[in-house]
Design a protein around this nucleic acid. Sequence first.
DNA 1: CACCAGGCAAGTA
DNA 2: TACTTGCATGGT
Length: 216
Amino acid sequence: MSSLPEYYKALFAHFGSQHWWPGDTTIEIMVGAVLTQNTNWQNVEKAIGNLKSAGVLDFQTLLHLPQPVLADYIRPSGYYNLKAVRLQNLLVFIDSCLDEGQELDSFFLDDVDVLRGQLLSVKGIGPETADSILLYAGGKPVFVIDTYAYRLLSRHGFVGEETSYDEMRELMLDALPHEVPLFNEFHALIVAVGKEFCRKKNPDCAGCPLGSFLVR
DNA sequence: CACCAGGCAAGTA
DNA sequence: TACTTGCATGGT
């Protein structure tokens, strides 16, 4: 086993379809992308649950919600003051891109590289959040690099320890066919194997489909 | 009790 | 440019 497509096959055979991203509307996925920054997904679910219960998980509603109110809803996700600002920065920017009465989804009609540059210009949206939004909310063929992907690529010798986000991203884009379902699934599978075969849960990596894949 | 989680930006030297 | 620090809750 040596190539990335083979890694994908091995992971898919072991874990099966991951059904990412959890979230059934575009706005819900975008909210999740911001709230999950350096945060356990369980906490994000609680925060999104609060927004749903309050009936405010809607683009225009979130856009106009007073920041302290929004912060209070998303408190369980941690960094809530910061994330309230970041989320509204994103929504304000997207709103400024839309014509009167246009749907949120029409934001994604532009060229993917143009969109990525625009998202990165929003304060609080870094490369991983931008790529998550493009792939999972916008259905664009980009690869999401997270801490698990970095560990996998570096520990298995695909890249060096000092490799940048964009370099790893390009490596994945070069190594794989540009198919949204593949990028979607692969990223999710990397997270799955990273969680299951961390030192804590599985110190000797017994049964890991990729051989030794230790985390932490 | 300590440590971690699907980052990012700002400050310091 | 290359580190370091702040942001914060909830699970293990």
